[in-house]
Amino acid sequence: MSRILLFNKPYGVICQFSRDGMHPTLADYIAVPDVYPAGRLDTDSEGLLLLTDDGKLQHRITDPKHKQPKTYWVQVEGIPDATALEQLRRGIQLKDGMTLPAEANLMAEPQGLWLRDPPVRFRKDIPTCWLWLTIHEGKNRQVRRMTAAVGFPTLRLIRYSIGKWTIDGLAPGKWLSMHA
């Protein structure tokens, strides 16, 4: 039976077990042998990271042809209007190609949201808001590049879910083991 770990990756943690001497790693949080990340999150992103001991499952989770939806809570600088949201929904032309259409909606700040260390920069004259953004691919830094392309830079990025798995009830730095 395949094993899968759901890990709520804190800000600043790199998605590998080997140490780089500068950042905390998965080894600082997870002492489980023979599990490997199924995908990555940038060091400055937070939220759900899946790890598994099953190479075939790892491939199914990460392979774009399986199109696992990934939902993010995205705090952006400014308040996107209907035009910006529609651009995200249609797809955005990035330097490495067109993104697939995304689901994009304004949302309230997530309930029970933990503080980030270091905190997000705030400017008193520029409001921020939260987006619920679901994508079906995983280009490098895609969500950040998409929001910037429509004029609303990402300040904080939290992956809420991958497919059926979520961070519900999982504090930052904590993980949950289950059978896939």
Results as ranks from 00 to 15, higher is better:
T71M: 12
P33C: 14
Q16H: 07
T62G: 11
P69H: 04
Q68W: 09
L106G: 03
G12C: 07
G78K: 01
H66G: 01
D53G: 12
Q87G: 01
Y11S: 04
P69S: 06
I79S: 02
A31T: 05
N105E: 15
P80A: 03
R89M: 09
Y36S: 08
Y29V: 01
G47E: 07
L57K: 05
A27W: 07
K70A: 13
K70S: 15
Q93M: 14
H66R: 02
L48Q: 08
Q68C: 11
A27K: 06
K9T: 01
V35C: 06
E46A: 05
L49Q: 07
D81P: 09
T52I: 05
T52L: 14
P101H: 13
I61M: 07
W73S: 12
Q87L: 11
G47L: 06
D20V: 02
T62S: 14
G97L: 07
K67H: 15
V13Q: 02
D42N: 10
S45D: 09
L85S: 06
L106F: 05
F17W: 06
I92W: 14
G78A: 08
E46K: 10
Y72P: 04
V74R: 00
T43K: 15
D28F: 04
L50K: 01
I61P: 09
T25D: 08
F17E: 15
S45K: 05
L48V: 07
I14Q: 03
I30C: 11
D20M: 02
L26R: 03
Y11E: 14
Q58T: 11
Q75S: 01
S18K: 10
I30E: 06
P69G: 08
Q87H: 14
I79F: 01
L48Y: 02
H23I: 00
Y29L: 05
V35M: 02
D53C: 08
G39M: 14
A84N: 04
S45G: 12
T99K: 06
T71G: 14
D42E: 06
R40D: 03
D44Y: 05
W73Q: 13
D42K: 00
Y36L: 01
L57P: 02
D34T: 10
L85R: 04
R60F: 06
L106I: 02
P33M: 13
D28I: 08
D20R: 00
Y36I: 02
V13L: 13
L49R: 03
E103P: 00
C15S: 15
F17S: 12
G91C: 09
L57H: 05
P10T: 00
G97V: 08
G91F: 00
V76N: 11
D34S: 14
V76I: 13
K95L: 08
E86N: 09
G21I: 07
L49D: 12
K9R: 12
W73K: 10
R90N: 12
G47R: 03
L106M: 04
L49I: 10
A104T: 04
V74P: 04
L85C: 07
Q16Y: 00
L85N: 06
R19C: 00
R60V: 09
M98W: 13
H23Y: 02
T99G: 03
G91H: 01
